[in-house]
């Protein structure tokens, strides 16, 4: 997007439960400063937090990228593996492959991807086993 007001990228490490939410909190605060409406802000925050948790719980590490243009917020989650063997299964509510550690913390209920999809206006997921997963979510800003 050539017209971006703002681009931000965060590294999210595998297993980094202690700092889970730092990237999403930062994204939320920045978008709030940029004057985005409260409803869109909440949708972005929820999807971002779910994506960040997924990177921590499931991936070998990755990035959370936020781009904001006058019309929309684009949230990209990109990891370096292990990839999702069956995306349609992963998109089912309640299907989870999360660890006990994640579950003990209150996560891993198999709601992450469906919740991201529900909160975003556009949702695109691509995954290759052995390569990684990229999720792109678009949120139209209300004016």
């Amino acid at each position: 997007m050539a017209n971006n007001l703002f681009v931000d990228s965060y590294d999210v490490a595998s297993g980094a439960f202690q700092t889970a939410g730092d990237a999403s909190a930062s994204i939320k605060r920045k978008l709030k400063q940029l004057g985005i409406d409260a409803v869109t802000l909440r949708r972005v925050a929820v999807a971002s937090y779910e994506a960040e948790l997924n990177l921590i719980i499931h991936s070998n590490g990755g990035n959370l990228i936020m781009e904001m243009s006058p019309e929309e917020v684009l949230l990209i989650s990109k990891d370096v593996g292990p990839g999702i063997p069956d995306i349609s299964k992963a998109l089912e509510e309640g299907y989870s492959t999360a660890s006990e550690e994640a579950r003990d913390l209150g996560f891993g209920a198999g709601m992450g991807l469906p919740n991201m999809k529900r909160n975003a206006d556009t949702f695109d997921i691509e995954s290759q086993v052995g390569e990684g997963t990229t999720i792109k979510m678009g949120f139209t800003i209300k004016r």
Binding site: A20, G21, S24, A25, K28, R42, A45, V46, S48, Y49, E50, L105, G106, F107, M111, P114, N115, R118
Partner: peptide
């Protein structure tokens, strides 16, 4: 994260920092 609406209070017995992070997002 999947069910909460506006002006909501959260009742929980889970005491870890993720409760506050979740509350912040919502």
């Amino acid at each position: 994260l999947a069910f909460v609406k506006e002006k909501c209070v959260l009742i929980t017995g889970l005491t870890n920092v993720h409760v506050m992070r979740t509350a912040e997002m919502l």
